[in-house]
Simulated assay, not measured.
Amino acid sequence: MRLTSPAIAPGAAIADDYACTGADRSPALAWSDAPQSTKTKSFALIVDDPDAPHGTFFHWVAYNIAAGETSLPAGVPQTAEIAGGGTNGINSFEHIGYNGPCPPPGKMHHYRFHLFALDSTLTPGDPADAAAVQSAMRGHVVATAELVGTFER
């Protein structure tokens, strides 16, 4: 499976438009080569920063994205429901949906966009944070893809 974004080249800097220094909107994402629809029942997306000062920080948790989807547009609203099918969970800012890079000044951080193809839909509870979604995904991941961007203030 492959995950891409017209806004983020692999390993390259994430633009201010997708960070707290700008519009702080989610970047467009597209994926391809997911396992056949008989195996993939939904997708989950977890965006994290493993370089955060107090451990991994989660910027976006989304799950139950419809199996027929192959992309998310830029600027997904910070509402519980994702248009086209899916649910936004709670990020480490304790907000629903996406909040972009906002590290302390001085050090480059890596932002990992993890996409998971799942053989089921999830019932992680409401509101679901990264830990709840990761727990619900156990034993259901049939493929993964990752896109990493960087950001520094």
Rank of each mutant, 00 (worst) to 15 (best):
G89S: 12
A130R: 00
A117I: 11
S26L: 09
D119W: 10
P103K: 08
K39N: 02
S32T: 12
A19W: 01
D51L: 08
T56L: 03
A44V: 02
A128W: 01
T56G: 09
P53C: 10
T21P: 04
D33M: 11
F116Y: 15
S32M: 05
F57W: 15
G22I: 14
N88M: 05
I46Q: 04
L118P: 15
S71F: 05
A34N: 09
N64I: 01
A67F: 01
A80S: 09
D126R: 09
C20Y: 01
G68K: 11
P27M: 14
Q36G: 13
L72V: 11
L29F: 03
F58Q: 05
F93K: 02
D33G: 11
I65Q: 07
D119V: 09
A66L: 09
L118K: 15
W31G: 01
H54Q: 13
F43A: 01
D24T: 05
Q78R: 15
P127R: 01
D49G: 05
T79V: 10
V47Q: 04
L122R: 04
E81L: 07
D119Y: 11
D51T: 12
D24I: 07
V47Y: 07
E69T: 12
G22Q: 14
G55N: 11
P50K: 05
I82W: 01
M108G: 07
N99G: 06
P53R: 09
K107H: 12
S26K: 05
A23P: 07
I65T: 06
V47E: 01
P50D: 04
C102Y: 04
A62P: 13
P27T: 13
G55E: 12
D24L: 10
T56A: 14
P127E: 01
T123A: 09
T40H: 03
A62V: 12
E69F: 00
H54T: 14
S42Q: 05
L29R: 13
G85V: 07
P53Q: 15
G89M: 09
T38S: 11
P101D: 04
T121D: 06
G106D: 08
S26W: 10
R25H: 13
G86S: 03
P35T: 07
P127I: 03
H95N: 08
H59P: 13
F113N: 14
S120Q: 15
W60L: 06
I96N: 08
S120R: 15
F116S: 14
I90D: 00
G22S: 08
P73K: 08
S92T: 03
S32E: 03
T40W: 00
I82G: 11
K107V: 14
A52T: 11
F43P: 00
P50E: 04
D49N: 15
T56C: 03
A74P: 08
A62G: 13
G100Q: 01
V61T: 00
C20W: 12
Q36I: 08
T121S: 07
H110I: 13
S120N: 14
T56K: 15
P124S: 02
K107E: 12
D24H: 11
A52R: 06
D126V: 11
P105I: 09
G100W: 00
P104V: 12
D33C: 05
H114I: 07
E69D: 10
L122A: 04
A23Y: 00
D48L: 03
M108V: 15
G22F: 03
G22E: 14
V76C: 04
R112T: 08
